[in-house]
Design a protein around this nucleic acid. Structure first.
Lengths: 204, 204
DNA sequence: CAGAGCATACCAACTGGTCGGTATTTATGT
DNA sequence: ACATAAATACCGACCAGTTGGTATGCTCTG
């Protein structure tokens, strides 16, 4: 729709939202604060977004796009064995925990807790982001099931969602403890679970 | 300290906080709203709590006490086999997902996401609640390790925390999707993981 | 000059918090 | 047992600052 020459105020506001909302939550983040961080005025804000709620929806979409592009370009996709590919994804998520300071958490996981009853539009945008990302894992998991000749009593979809649940939960424990390394322990358990599920040493 | 004959305003405010904060988040819950729900006035609020922040800390503590008492009284503790006892806990958590309308989520998991950078006192109270609850599982898991004669490369503590991460993450996915049954799928995966870890069919 | 992009000034509603006062217990002295 | 003093619990009007949102106008570019 818009051309967005240079760095538009809209993009700067969305980036500011990603940063501040992840730290403080959506409700605690004021429009003024967003504008100050982005270096624009309130007039610019309400020129690009009809309301603070609309900014929340746009931020969730923006999050889906940026993270989606990042995971799509990740090298783990080139691993031949589908089981190793799934484990490659989990290893990537583990590596990301050591990333930039306090920039490791998930925007939509944070927002949806505040919005799931009071703000359907934001909740739906968060839902699309989380479940859409899970779908990118589903094919690899299904291929892994076929490759190992399994006939599990669980679905590829449910396991893909389980990985997201573990990651979201790991973020919460990391935030509560103030120590990101505890999250690594959770991800290690997840990797071990995947390993056990697809291990040929299983019988009965 | 206080005797709290009848139903004191303090208790009513804490109960109101449990209800509203879990639905809307801490920042989006106003003091006025809390008072209205509790049926008391602002004077009562600031008589019992120095600030809204102090209410948040007290609510987290209140949450720890009520849920702690509930889990302590649960029948799964009487299961003889420690592995089955751990699975009994997970089954209980699964059953709770079908509980009262929108009353299945965790107060401290919601609050800590908003408070972990901006409010150390609340964050610490949430940390104590989550990690304290995890500790009640640790002994059973350790006993299970001994009972099965395992020498795992993971600790009872890390597995206890992993269960909490799965549950917290399951809440987020349930909120995002508006469907609590997806959370059941995550818990089932957790139960399967526990089963595989302590399964005697494992080798190498 | 038309319209997108943005800035400034402004507003009503709401925010957390204060303050003087009153009702209700509880503690104490006799 | 009873009066009284002293806390404690609670009320509700009020406040200054902040909130999301608006109205208007300037300034570019095509």
């Amino acid at each position: 729709m818009t051309n967005t020459k240079r760095v538009s105020a809209r993009t700067k506001l969305l980036d500011a939202a990603l940063s501040i909302v992840r730290r403080k939550g959506f409700a605690a983040t004021s429009v003024d604060e967003l504008c100050k961080e982005a270096g624009v005025t309130k007039g610019a804000f309400f020129h690009h977004f009809d309301s603070k709620e609309a900014l929340g929806v746009a931020a969730a979409d923006h999050w889906s796009e940026t993270t989606g592009a990042m995971f799509a370009a990740a090298p783990y996709h080139q691993i031949a064995d589908p089981v190793e590919r799934v484990l490659g994804y989990i290893q990537l998520r583990r590596d990301l925990l050591d990333g930039e300071e306090a920039e490791y958490t998930c925007l939509v996981g944070t927002m949806v807790q505040e919005a799931y009853t009071s703000n359907p539009a934001i909740r739906d945008a968060c839902k699309t982001s989380i479940f859409g990302h899970a779908e990118t894992l589903e094919d690899d998991i299904q291929a892994a099931i076929v490759a190992r000749g399994l006939t599990p009593d669980w679905t590829a979809k449910s396991l893909a969602l389980h990985t997201q649940a573990v990651l979201q939960g790991a973020f919460i424990l990391a935030k509560a403890s103030g120590d990101r390394s505890v999250a690594e322990g959770m991800v290690d358990h997840l990797a071990r679970y995947i390993h056990l599920l697809f291990s040929p040493a299983k019988k009965v």
